[in-house]
Design a protein around this nucleic acid. Structure first.
Lengths: 221, 221, 221, 221
DNA sequence: AATGAATGAGCATTCATTCAT
DNA sequence: CATGAATGAATGCTCATTCAT
């Protein structure tokens, strides 16, 4: 049915035709995903047309089906592409052995700078993944769960080490960190004048220390 | 040209024919806005069809145009409806004289409970307003600016009173509070099992105190 | 089916309820036909909406059906209204006993001045009557035939009297006079700056004498 | 945005890929314009549907948009197509050096035979061009002006040569010739039994000599 | 006599998708 | 690999028409 050449999909982990290079197809497929990401990020899944994506990629509309078997499939691949990259980077951070506070800076910094580098795919994952039919969300759910657990584990370690308050809810806190970063990520993409470093600082600080002044915390807690 | 009855739009501030009752039209118009809000919240602006909205309202598709002159106009009215209500409630809170910490609880509580009460219109405002053409966003921008200033002012008072740390960025903090609440608001709508009270507590706590334990703060700050 | 009160249709020749006055209905019905004529003349039958007509008449769209049982019926009545008036006036001219040349002036003058007096109904008859379904054209065909015969008869008399050339085709000539007048009628409505008297003179002259100079005619004929 | 292939519009004057052949697209585009002309001529612009045009062309309704970006655009192109052809043919006639009277026969003959050859596009131009929005009429106005000037110039020459009466209004006469021919053109399309040659003769004769008999002209003029 | 409200059918337009070349 | 051409289903919107009040 589809003309898409599955024998060399970049999605498969199959051995490459050569050790060094990727096939021409695989290279262009990445470009296709990125083109789709740009378009979905700007117009939303339903607001985007296959024509938009094709012209972003510099090919004709019908030719897009050489790379994606359907528009929804394009969305799935964009989401996975964006989120996989993201999670992979986060895993590196989590595996590093460093003070908790520094780790938190790294987490936030990584998240935000990824947005600023026009990582449209991640934005698409965050904003549009719910438009995927359930049977296409499997891999994303896996990744999401893995990621949140990683984050929760890290937070749990912080609690055990006495660096974090014992009364925080790990699940809640993980979600909140992600939510806060996503909110600012959106701002960073929309408004280029926002300073990335300042925002990273502020976010990490808010998460770590909240807004109350020291004496207040002493007083009431 | 249009058959839509502009003479009694609920949007106008014109005096009603009687103090007590709204016209039948005005009542149904509100229902229409709410129906549109439900549909837009679930499917997104571009994913929703006028047929979806009409059937949610219990009328035929074409009849919807008796209430909205276009789909985009429906989006605009939903956004304004949701945001106006929200801002009005916030203004009440801001005008109350109460300790800062309590005020923060009120702000978060108000924001989140509004989502839980299926305030789809607010969710639509947050997620879909960017699909409005620029010339339809005027009122929304006004409201948004007014709201952020209110929040920033409140935070500024907290700083002056010494309740909040002097080094926080008011603008950043205001945005962050809104972003965090919106993230959890989305979760609350999607997942009914999440406890509203717990979430409110946790959000307010995170914003106020962050995650670090007391001695850490003492140590490093 | 229709709510239209046929008992006092202005179309019927039934005795009026009073010798002097027409009923209120009959008066407004005429206004309705004239409103429809204006709209059809400007926008064409298919380009016009019942809303256009109603608002021209100063009532609400649904109310129009009190006067016309359907849009097409409105067209029929406009056409008949316009053409009946026109034919009646022509009949007066034809019945007058006067030199042929003067008669031709009268015919042209009557036709053109009728257009200039915003006789939209006549324009509608000329331009839009073909959009009537065949079973609604009966009366119009009668009138048209009667009119053309009248005109042809008049031309025939001209030939018999030796005023007109013997070799002209009566049928052709009648059609041509009508066609020429209609063409100028359209111009007169569209462009108010065109002088009615000049145009009448010119039309009559063209029909009577053509464009050739006298000696040419002598020479070649 | 549109899938319509603008790069090879037959409207452009760009060099063709080969001297001999037009592209397949260009050929079918002409067919599309002619199909639209037939439908518009029969039903009027507003009375015609894109489905009518598509089925006349033998394709599905949606596919029509491969050739026209909108229904109104189709009307514009039909009008220009019809009128351009017509004006071009007229220009040939005007440039020929021949006695005035023969020229008039040519003009009328050309005009009428064009109608008879089912030149629906010309009829559409005459009857429907006013339904074009003003910003789409530019080219048509140019052509119309050019044509009328040509005709007026020719008539002016006739006057100078003494072939035409000195007292005729060039502008008026030009318009009248066009109007008369259009009126008969409509008849010729509608009624196949009308003889083209006779009609041409009669029209030219009427324009040249009018209807009065020779002695009358002598008498009164 | 008129209106508000609704309907349903029609229509222009868009767009994902297919496929021969 | 890529494209031109076409399709068909959907979808926003219009509008003549109906009818209870």
């Amino acid at each position: 049915m589809s003309q898409s050449p599955q024998q060399h999909s970049i999605e498969s982990n199959a051995a490459h035709s050569s050790v060094v290079g990727e096939t021409r197809y695989a290279k262009k497929k990445v470009l296709a995903i990125e083109a789709a990401a740009i378009v979905f990020a700007n117009k939303g899944f339903h607001g985007a047309t296959t024509e938009d994506i094709a012209s972003e990629l510099g090919i004709k509309q019908g030719s897009l089906y050489y790379y994606f078997s359907s528009k929804e499939e394009a969305l799935r691949q964009v989401c996975e592409y964006g989120f996989e990259n993201y999670v992979a980077q986060m895993q590196k951070i989590f595996s590093r052995s460093q003070p908790f506070e520094a780790k938190m800076y790294s987490i936030v910094s990584s998240h935000l700078s990824r947005y600023r580098q026009k990582s449209n795919a991640l934005k698409v994952h965050n904003d549009q993944r719910l438009y995927l039919s359930k049977d296409k969300r499997g891999r994303l759910k896996e990744l999401g769960t893995a990621y949140r657990q990683l984050l929760e584990t890290t937070l749990g370690e912080g609690v055990e080490q006495g660096v974090l308050r014992a009364d925080i809810d790990l699940h809640f806190t993980a979600y909140s960190i992600i939510g806060l970063c996503n909110a600012w990520g959106g701002n960073l993409i929309r408004d280029e004048s926002i300073d990335l470093f300042d925002t990273t600082e502020s976010c990490a600080n808010l998460i770590l220390r909240g807004v109350l002044s020291a004496q207040q915390i002493g007083t009431e807690y």
